[in-house]
Structures are given as structure tokens and as C-alpha cells.
């Protein structure tokens, strides 16, 4: 064999992980892992900017994700140090030091969600209270829509936002019954 041919043989396929690593590292796809939460197994999606989505670990979560966020999901390990932060955020119902990717919501919605994150465990607030805190006291309806659009339920505790007359209201992550269960576990309702 000529030397040139021998050198050509040193050309081998790149490891299969390279492409996945690149799409995850650029944020073209989000990574996901499954975690335990007070509502059972949930899928947590993440990219270099932060945690981008939390959903129930049920059939079709990948389709639901790509329909909403227009990116694909790949099974992945979270960035170094985030795994503990995710476990903690899910258990306590607050993001803490975990970064959140808010690109999927408007600046107003982001403000509302950041206020929501400050509602302490074991307490609830009304949509009107949140609207005032976000600087638009008459926007209770927009706040309601924001809760429905919360990309990271449990991590941002939209389940702690209820109607001012005490009714429990909607819950995107599996309906009002789950919201009630969460609030009961947290000691916010009897």
C-alpha cells in the first residue's frame, strides 16, 4: 500500500455524539432529562441559557415541546451543577439559582413569571395581586394567560396563583385537581 493510501485510511467517521453535542451546545436542540417531582415524573428541558420547559413525562412530550418551542429535544445530561439545582427547584417550587430560559414569553409575561417565583411555599396569591406587582393592576386576564403559558411549571410556582374569590382556577400541568393536590402538600389549603 502506498503511504498516501495508508494516510487516507486514517480518515474515520466522527463519533456519533459529535453532531448531538454540537446541536446541544449551540442551542439548536434542547436537552431533556426525567426527574421526580411532587406530581410524579416530569421532563425538564434545558439549553445553555437555562431551563426551558417542564412537562409531565407522558406520551407526546417531545411533540408538545417542538410544537411550542420550534426546537427538537435530545436526551441529555444537564450542564454541570444544574442537576442538583433542578432537583431542588422541583422539590421547593422555586427556581432558586437555576437559570430559566424566558425566550418563549413576552417581556411582560417574563416580569409576571419572575414575580410568581417570589410567592413563598405554603401561600397563594391572586391574579390581581400579580397584575399589580407587574405594574399593570388591570391586567388580571393577561396574568391568567401568562400562567397558562408558564414554560416551567413547578419551577415557577404558577400553582400558587388562584382566583381572588378563593376558587382554585386552571392548571396547565394536568388540571385543577393536581393544582389542589400541590397546594395541599405545601400546606396552603386544608
Amino acid at each position: 500500500m502506498t503511504l498516501e493510501k495508508e494516510l487516507e485510511r486514517l480518515s474515520v467517521p466522527a463519533p456519533t455524539g459529535v453532531l448531538d453535542g454540537v446541536v446541544l451546545g449551540t442551542g439548536l436542540s434542547d436537552g431533556f432529562s426525567v426527574f421526580e417531582s411532587p406530581l410524579g415524573s416530569v421532563v425538564v428541558a434545558f439549553n445553555p441559557l437555562g431551563v426551558s420547559a417542564v412537562d409531565l413525562f407522558t406520551d407526546g412530550f417531545e411533540v408538545r415541546f417542538s410544537d411550542r418551542f420550534r426546537r427538537r429535544l435530545l436526551e441529555a445530561r444537564p450542564p454541570r451543577g444544574w442537576e442538583d439545582l433542578i432537583i431542588q427547584a422541583l422539590a421547593e417550587g422555586t427556581p432558586g439559582a437555576l437559570p430559566v430560559d424566558f425566550r418563549s414569553v413576552t417581556p411582560f409575561q417574563r416580569q409576571v413569571l419572575e414575580q410568581t417565583a417570589s410567592i413563598p411555599r405554603g401561600e397563594t396569591r391572586s391574579y390581581g395581586w400579580l397584575a399589580s406587582r407587574a405594574g399593570r393592576p388591570k391586567a388580571a386576564r393577561a396574568v391568567g394567560q401568562t400562567m397558562a403559558r408558564n414554560p416551567v411549571p413547578l419551577v415557577i410556582p404558577c400553582h400558587r396563583v388562584v382566583l381572588s374569590d378563593g376558587r382554585i382556577g386552571h392548571y396547565g400541568l394536568g388540571g385543577a385537581e393536581r393544582k389542589r393536590r400541590l397546594l395541599r402538600v405545601e400546606g396552603a389549603i386544608g
Partner: peptide, 14 residues
């Protein structure tokens, strides 16, 4: 460090 890493291949004993 702020980068997700693929897991599929490790699991498949690649």
C-alpha cells in the same frame, strides 16, 4: 460548563 451533553450513546455501550 454551561452545556448539556448527550447521554444516548453512553447508555448504548457505544
Amino acid at each position: 460548563s454551561r452545556r448539556p451533553t448527550p447521554t444516548r450513546l453512553e447508555e448504548a455501550g457505544y
